[in-house]
Structure formats: structure tokens, C-alpha cells
Design a protein around this nucleic acid. Structure first.
Length: 314
DNA sequence: CATCGCCTCTCTACAAAGAG
DNA sequence: CTCTTTGTAGAGAGGCGATG
């Protein structure tokens, strides 16, 4: 199980480096800065968390100060990708995976779970990062249905080792089946990424309000599709992670509108700066807040012991 | 090649506080 | 009580990057 998720994670990380808005910034300055921060030390939880506290500074290195459409677009992609990288690095070796939406990585079941049906309009906030936590290996239910040969094979946990050579598409199908058959044990955390933290905080606020509803009086508004719903899974959270790009952080206070707009989010507010009480926590706190169980099953330092830094672009 | 989602700024209006 | 200063919410404007 774990192994299969790692293959998938590796593919996601590989894909991040195919995105220009990420890889260019990475090569131009982010990579160097991260390596400087590590200062020839081995990667460990302490400096990994420290990296979290420097993520805003690192991100802003590539700031041109322009707000042309190109900058607007690539800044957003860049931040989202950087977070996908950081979060997946922190979760290496766990049963939680952070997906940056792309057709071949999306799980059909999860998409259905978080879909919002607004009349005839089907909306699933596709552009956000989605963290999916699988149940521990021992809790995964076997399917007794008679399936095609492939499915029989993949439902036999013992044979998982053989799946190494399988393509992303097949792993996707397989993991998707696992989700389907274990839906009540699956945890989902939708992570809304935004570079600035102003009035656009209305967006995560809006989604959180929708997702926290237990039902609408208008019966043409519904969450979930084909029997999948956030109410049928183990845990659903909505989080917000911002750089933020505002120059003066002192202006962002616990009484500020943009803070109040998101301070009830089920999954919390995080940023690339040191934790500020009642405003935002540093990104590194998301691991213990939202992925506590899976993150701590095996210690981070243990999980990354045999990690080749090249695999994560360093 | 159509669709979708992105905001690495800047300015103004208004309210509240402060000065006299 | 009126004028000035300070703080901040909100509006405005304007195409590109990634994907399928």
C-alpha cells in the first residue's frame, strides 16, 4: 500500500517539474536558496520545518513586482506547485498524498465526493490541492466481488509489490478502487492556495460555508454525486494556505477582515511565515494539525532516511 | 484551440482617531 | 466642534499559463 502511494507521489513530484511556472523559478533561485538553507546538513525534521518558515521569503525571491497577466497566472501556479512539493515531501512514506489536480492524478471517487451540484451546474473546485489519506494497510477492506483479473490481483495486498512497474493510470484506477471500497475510512483535505491574502479570502470562506452545510433548503444544491459525499468519509477539511504577498505583515491582525473571513475554516489557515497567534500558523504545522495520525506513524527522519534528494529536485 | 483559474498592484472612499 | 491624519476595505483593471 504505502509503496504504491510512493510511486504515485513520485510521479506527482516529477510532474511539478514539468510545469514552467514552477521549474523556472525553481532553477532560477528556489533550489539554490533551499540548499543554502540546508547548509550541507542532512534533511531532517528540524530543517524541514525551518524551510516551511522560509517559504514566503523563498517564494518572493522570484517576484518581479509586476502584476501583468503573465505574472498573475504563473505566480498562482508557482505557489500551488511549491506547496505540492513541500507537503508531499513532508508526507513521504505516509498514507497521505497531496494531489495537484491533473486528469491522470485525480481520483474519480474523490472528485465525486467533493462535487457541488448547483442546479444543472456541476462544480468541483478542481484547481486546489487535495490531500487524500488512506486507511492504514491493515484496515483496508478486501473486496469479495468477482472482478476482472487485474482487479483480483490488485485487491490482493500481498501482490502489491508487483505493481511497481504499473503505469500511473493503473495505479490511479487501483487506488480509486481502494477509496471506493473503503470510503468511510478515507480522509480528504481540500487545500486552497492563494498568494495574497485580501478580499480573495472570500473564496475559501464561501467554499467552507458550502461544505460545512448539512443540507440546503433549496433541493437543487447538493454536495456529492453517485452516492459519494463528504458526509460518508471519515473526515473532510477545508484549509487555506497563503504566501502572503502583502509587504507589511503587521497589518494582518487577528481583527483584520481577511483573517476573520477564514478563521473558521475546518482545516485551518497557514502561511509561509512564522506562526502568528490567532492569525495564521506556519505551513509546517499542517502536518500535525491535519495529518496527525499518518504523519506520526513513522517519524519523518525515519521516513526520509533513504531519500535521494535528486528525486525531489534538489 | 477553447476553457478555466490565476492576482509577485495601486488607488480611492470612508471611518475613526487625534489635534487644536 | 471642526479640520487633519491615519488606517483599511474594497474596487479596479487587465490576458496569460496549463490543460484536455
Amino acid at each position: 500500500m504505502i509503496k504504491l502511494i510512493e510511486i504515485y507521489r513520485k510521479e506527482i513530484i516529477k510532474y511539478l517539474f514539468e510545469i514552467k511556472s514552477f521549474s523556472q523559478s525553481w532553477e532560477n533561485s528556489w533550489k539554490k536558496e533551499i540548499l543554502t538553507l540546508l547548509n550541507n546538513e542532512e534533511l531532517n525534521e528540524v530543517n524541514f520545518f525551518k524551510l516551511g518558515e522560509n517559504l514566503r521569503r523563498i517564494f518572493l525571491l522570484t517576484s518581479s513586482g509586476d502584476r501583468g497577466q503573465g505574472e498573475v497566472s504563473s505566480a498562482g501556479t508557482g505557489w500551488e506547485s511549491l506547496l505540492a512539493w513541500y507537503l508531499n515531501l513532508g508526507l513521504i512514506g505516509t498514507r497521505t498524498i497531496v494531489i495537484k489536480p491533473k486528469k491522470k492524478f485525480n481520483f474519480d471517487t474523490i472528485q465525486k465526493t467533493i462535487t457541488v451540484n448547483y442546479g444543472n451546474f456541476i462544480s468541483n473546485s478542481e484547481s486546489d490541492l487535495i490531500a487524500v489519506t488512506f486507511p492504514p494497510k491493515k484496515d483496508i477492506a478486501y473486496s469479495v466481488e468477482k472482478l476482472e483479473e487485474y482487479e483480483n490481483k490488485v485487491f490482493s495486498i500481498d501482490l502489491l509489490e508487483e505493481l511497481d512497474a504499473y503505469s500511473v493510470d493503473k495505479i490511479n484506477l487501483f487506488l480509486n478502487k481502494i477509496i471506493e471500497n473503503n470510503i468511510s475510512k478515507i480522509e480528504v483535505n481540500v487545500i486552497q492556495c492563494k498568494t495574497n491574502w485580501n478580499d480573495n479570502a472570500q473564496i475559501p470562506m464561501g467554499w467552507d460555508i458550502i461544505y460545512s452545510s448539512t443540507g440546503f433548503t433549496k433541493d437543487n444544491i447538493k454536495i456529492g454525486r453517485d452516492g459519494f459525499s463528504i458526509h460518508k468519509i471519515k473526515d473532510f477539511r477545508y484549509s487555506f494556505i497563503t504566501v502572503p504577498t502583502q509587504k507589511n505583515l503587521d497589518k494582518i491582525k487577528e481583527t483584520s477582515t481577511q483573517v476573520l473571513r477564514v478563521n473558521k475554516l475546518s482545516g485551518g489557515i497557514f502561511w509561509g511565515e512564522k506562526t502568528k497567534l490567532n492569525v495564521a500558523k506556519n505551513i509546517n504545522e499542517i502536518f500535525n494539525d491535519n495529518f496527525h495520525e499518518s504523519y506520526n506513524e513513522i517519524k519523518f527522519n525515519e521516513r526520509i532516511k533513504n531519500l535521494d534528494l535528486k528525486e525531489i529536485g534538489l
